[in-house]
């Protein structure tokens, strides 16, 4: 009888000890919950749609057409794709500068590059940007850093679709 009472007490202590450890584990788990960065998340969610909207409306030096119109012109002049999946083009693009013979594809690349370099890139915001024919070849692509958003925890993305003479064009921006 005496022996079983001692066993019961030890069992009681073990239960109390387990409860204590259990409580401590819950506390550690609760206090280590990663805090959400509301301000950054807000900006991240807003960024892709705002940036695509603003960018497609931007007036370029190419006959004062906006970037959206340049994308449509480039997409309408694509004739197929190379081995790497990039689009190939006919000569039917808008000529932006008669002296230098700059075409819309070249102008588009210059402007888009300048926009990204002086906005997202300079402020160290990671992104992936792509212009491609729907289920087809790639017109333009850019990532910062080189692996884009592949390692990012949170990604915010937006796709704008335009209708060109050669089919739909997707403009995709992922910010992370």
């Amino acid at each position: 009888m005496k022996n079983s009472k001692g066993q019961l007490e030890i069992f009681g202590i073990a239960v109390i000890f387990l409860l204590f450890i259990f409580g401590l584990m819950i506390f550690i788990k609760l206090s280590s919950t990663k805090e959400e960065n509301l301000a950054f998340n807000f900006m991240l969610e807003q960024m892709p749609s705002r940036l695509l909207q603003t960018m497609t409306e931007t007036t370029t030096a190419c006959q004062k057409k906006n970037i959206g119109a340049l994308i449509l012109d480039v997409a309408s002049s694509q004739s197929g794709s190379d081995n790497a999946g990039r689009c190939t083009y006919t000569d039917n693009q808008i000529i932006c500068d008669t002296v230098t013979q700059t075409k819309s594809k070249s102008e588009l690349e210059t402007v888009v590059k300048q926009i990204f370099e002086n906005s997202l890139k300079i402020d160290k915001i990671s992104y992936e940007f792509e212009i491609k024919m729907k289920d087809g070849c790639q017109i333009y692509t850019e990532k910062n850093p080189a692996d884009g958003c592949s390692k990012a925890g949170k990604i915010s993305a937006e796709t704008f679709t335009l209708q060109s003479l050669k089919g739909k064009v997707d403009i995709v921006l992922k910010v992370c």
């Binding site: 301000a39 900006m43 603003t54 960018m55 409306e57 997202l120």
Partner: peptide, 8 residues
């Protein structure tokens, strides 16, 4: 807190 917004 820093926010960046693209604007036309």
């Amino acid at each position: 807190k820093t926010f960046y917004f693209p604007v036309s």
